[in-house]
Amino acid sequence: MIELNEISKTFDTYRVVDRVSLTIPDHARIALLGPSGSGKTTLLRLIAGLEKPDTGTITMDGRLMSSPGTMVPPSERSIGFVFQNGALWPHMTVAENIRFALGDLAFGEQQLRTRSLLERMGIFTLSARYPDQISGGEARRVALARALAPRPSTLLFDEPLTSLDRTLREDLLLLILESVRETGSRMLYVTHDEYEAERIDGTIIRFENGTICHDGF
């Protein structure tokens, strides 16, 4: 279970996240729906440990992860993150991008896991290509595979289908939902698209001006 307790974050003088409290149970699927600039991405980054809260605490499975005086490094939080536009490392091939996320495993196991993920995502033939040699849709599949690679307990999605056409969005959304179901991870999916939020088939939380304005629980 992830618990956010009175979390706030201010950039310069603008309070982007304002005293947010939220509980994310195990295996939950949550869509965080809100307009651009409402603070959804910052909330995801706070959970991932990429931002430090000004006030409040974040605990994961009983362990304190973030507070103004405590920060557990992002790599120790068992989190998979799918960024907008993929955020693939340009100097690594598709396979290397996935393998990098499997740092703790022996090389042989890394190879096996990478291969199985590439096959699962339907991009095995692209394994030796670099990010600039694949399409936008393929890049999102690689990003999803990379997020799934270390078998994280929490999967965070930051508008992962932005700037894709409708067919691709539908295919990828199905793939995301199947993957989440298979892994049993909890999922927090940020979007500004009402249709995408409904397709998640879980709890919808509406987020505006840095606060939760409708809790779907």
Binding site: R45, A48, L50, P73, P74, S75, R77, I79, G80, F81, F83, Q84, A87, L88, W89, P90, F100, A101, G103, R146, A149, P150
Partner: peptide, 19 residues
Amino acid sequence: RLVDAGRLVRSDIVVLWRI
């Protein structure tokens, strides 16, 4: 964002060397 993506899965020193 590419640095952040690395920090989610590996330690900062590995991210420095490899990313």
